[in-house]
Nucleic acid binder design. Sequence first.
DNA 1: GACTCTATCTCGGTA
DNA 2: TACCGAGGTAGAGTC
Lengths: 219, 219
Amino acid sequence: MRLVIARCTVDYVGRLSATLPPAVRLVMHKADGCVAVHADGGAYKPLNWMNAPNTLIEDGPVWAVCNPKGETLRITFEEVFVDVAHDCGEDPGLSKDGVEAHLQELLAAHPHAVGDGYTLVRREYPTGIGPVDLLCRDADGNAVAVEIKRRGEIDGVEQLARYVERLNRDPLLRPVRGVLAAQQVRPQARVLASDRGLGWVEVDYDELRGLESDELRLF
Amino acid sequence: MRLVIARCTVDYVGRLSATLPPAVRLVMHKADGCVAVHADGGAYKPLNWMNAPNTLIEDGPVWAVCNPKGETLRITFEEVFVDVAHDCGEDPGLSKDGVEAHLQELLAAHPHAVGDGYTLVRREYPTGIGPVDLLCRDADGNAVAVEIKRRGEIDGVEQLARYVERLNRDPLLRPVRGVLAAQQVRPQARVLASDRGLGWVEVDYDELRGLESDELRLF
DNA sequence: GACTCTATCTCGGTA
DNA sequence: TACCGAGGTAGAGTC
């Protein structure tokens, strides 16, 4: 990893064109060859960047970074204040908890949180256009496709609608209803779901985790 | 901007929980208070981060970063290799060219580029499921919903179809047609648009900019 | 390699 | 403030 703090200008030409006027910024050059230009604010996004793989040509005060897709990033250094390098080695990676996959586990274990009397048929039920998160049976024994999101938005409704339409072609399964299950369902998603004849339900992640730990205590 | 390269562990608890085992990484602390931890690969995403506003408490080898939402980031330094700081000052920001917002401006100013005789009713015309980019009237005075994309793909057709279906419920507006306007319309999007009875048009961005500058010359 | 979907998505706009 | 949509989305997983 090489870190350069310098007054510089930056030009990117590729999927769009973007230019940065002269200012003092951080230029990061990582071990995999990628380059990122950061301002002194905004943690997440670099102002400009070029992912690996690419080729970096240092020509005096100019870095020309090109990738195979024909995109180019050109950094022109006017005044360098810091220039340090250090070998970091491999990163072991991070572990996460609390994302959609975990919500799916919890709902698979507690399908009644989606609807009273629901039972699980299987997770990741294949449809031909991708797997539906959960396939359940309701209290009357009819199939229900459940799409799980952390936040229920229009995209999720569309996705669910595609699955339900597809599953209803199977004479052994139909009639199949659809339910969008999310910690939070946005108003527009509610409207569209109703339009499409789909249900939606907001589930409480912490409550589900509570059920989980209750059961662990019981057994 | 302060840059620390160090062997460290990181724990984030907030919207999810994430932990990083000991390894050598870059810790950035920017002037606005935000903190980001970067591995030596992957230009864009930090492994862990905390946006401003937040409060950073340095307690010996431990940085505790908390934000008002109750999220916390804890960095424990084991061995520091680099620790540099530099004042960058304000960044003037970057200018972009070629994105959808600009294309929308240009088409709002020149609706005839979407269709002969088209006039603009308004931009971001609201529907219950989100605003449609442009609402126009065609030469016969009928409403036309225009969805603008840099690249016209299936998603854009779906989006447009939803708007048109929705707008056609309004007796004051209907009949409403739909047109997908993009610099490039993919073959699959063309087929789907035709299936749905929607139109599509490829617009020349540079030509529109030309019109714009012509007008500037005239006045 | 192309396609799909998630994201502590970020970021900007607007009501 | 909350909501909504775009992004040079990036990045991970699957086919």
